[in-house]
Amino acid sequence: MPPHLAGANGGSSSAGFPRFDVATDSSDHAYLTHNKKAGSCFTNLSSGVHKKIMQEWKILEKHLPETIAVRVYENRIDLMTAAVVGAQGTPYHDGLYFFDIGFPVDYPRSPPWVHYRSFGMRINPNLYANGRVCLSLINTWSGKKNEKWNPAESTILQVLISIQALVLNEKPYYNEPGVGLWPGKPFWDKKSNAYSEDAFLLSCKTMLHLVRRPPKNFEVFVESHFRERGLAILSAMVAYKNGECRVGYYGIGGLSLVPGKGEPSEKFKAGIKQLMPQLAAAFARTGAPVGNFVEQVAGEKVASNSVEGKQNKRPAKKEKKTGGVKILFGKLKQILGLTKKKEKKAST
């Protein structure tokens, strides 16, 4: 490992987790078995491929934004893994999205390989359930010449920022081929709203997968992220279910639903009711302060934008040391109508 990268941290993200660092365990990487017959291009310090990858490491170490974290591997410099945080103002807000990256033997002449850890779900037109990432910058999608991979100028940092800004964007429906905005077309049409609803639900399902089984080397990052953002995510779910704001815009304001238009679909409401108890239980295991959340959403008439404020003002009730998560899960199921009330026996 190059001396300047020993103990590298490149700044910190969630709860002091280094945004950039060198790891050793690459056993769950999508491209682990690639490059087995690569020769010495990745181990020879004087090779052009090795030098270029080290340049990439330096760029990431210095310029990664706070919302992206990267792990490179000491014994496999041809591999790296990145975690991208979904941006506010999109249906992907507060979610975590993981990408495995591999370098071909002729890098940078050929672009890097990029695999999305999808858990079998297609959350975006450019991110397939099989992990395929469609992006002009890595030559997996059509685009203008200046949008394609340029061996002399393109970098991994550009790829990651493009995924965060251009793929996981505000209106993912319009990423579909042949679908686009034109003058006079309503900005919020039914198809776009429906796609954003589905994207948010799939993002929530992705969160469950990540909390239950985080990627190697990102265990602390995943836990601390959802410990910090868990309450906000649950509060957003209430807001969207109650039609208080458009999907993706919780906490931003100024985009309330027009009365009678754009109401959340019944399918979306049902999805929220199913996922919310599971997410609350998962976030509770990370230490997220969601204990009072059950009380705040009881009756489903509480304004969700006051949930976080009340949570911070009120001391959380102490839960029993054993079975606390189970109790929370049961209460949420009852509040959201997922359990049937026992019928009273007729008096004789």
Rank of each mutant, 00 (worst) to 15 (best):
S304C: 10
Q278R: 12
K273W: 03
T286G: 04
G271F: 03
Q311F: 01
G262F: 04
K267W: 08
A298S: 15
Q278H: 14
K269E: 14
P264W: 02
V294A: 11
A284Q: 05
F268I: 05
F293H: 00
V302E: 02
E300D: 10
V290I: 08
G260T: 01
S306E: 03
V258L: 15
E300P: 00
P289Y: 08
V302T: 10
K267H: 09
L255A: 05
A316H: 11
G299C: 11
V307Y: 09
R314S: 06
G260K: 07
G260L: 07
P264C: 04
Q296Y: 08
V294M: 00
N292A: 05
P289E: 10
A284G: 03
E295Q: 08
L255M: 11
K269Y: 13
V258A: 12
G254N: 05
A282F: 11
G291M: 05
G271K: 02
K317A: 11
Q274A: 04
L255S: 07
A281G: 10
E300Y: 13
K313C: 08
V258N: 14
K301G: 00
I272T: 01
V307D: 02
Q274L: 04
F268L: 05
V297Y: 01
N305H: 14
E266C: 11
S306I: 12
R285G: 04
Q274T: 00
P264M: 08
A303E: 10
K317P: 08
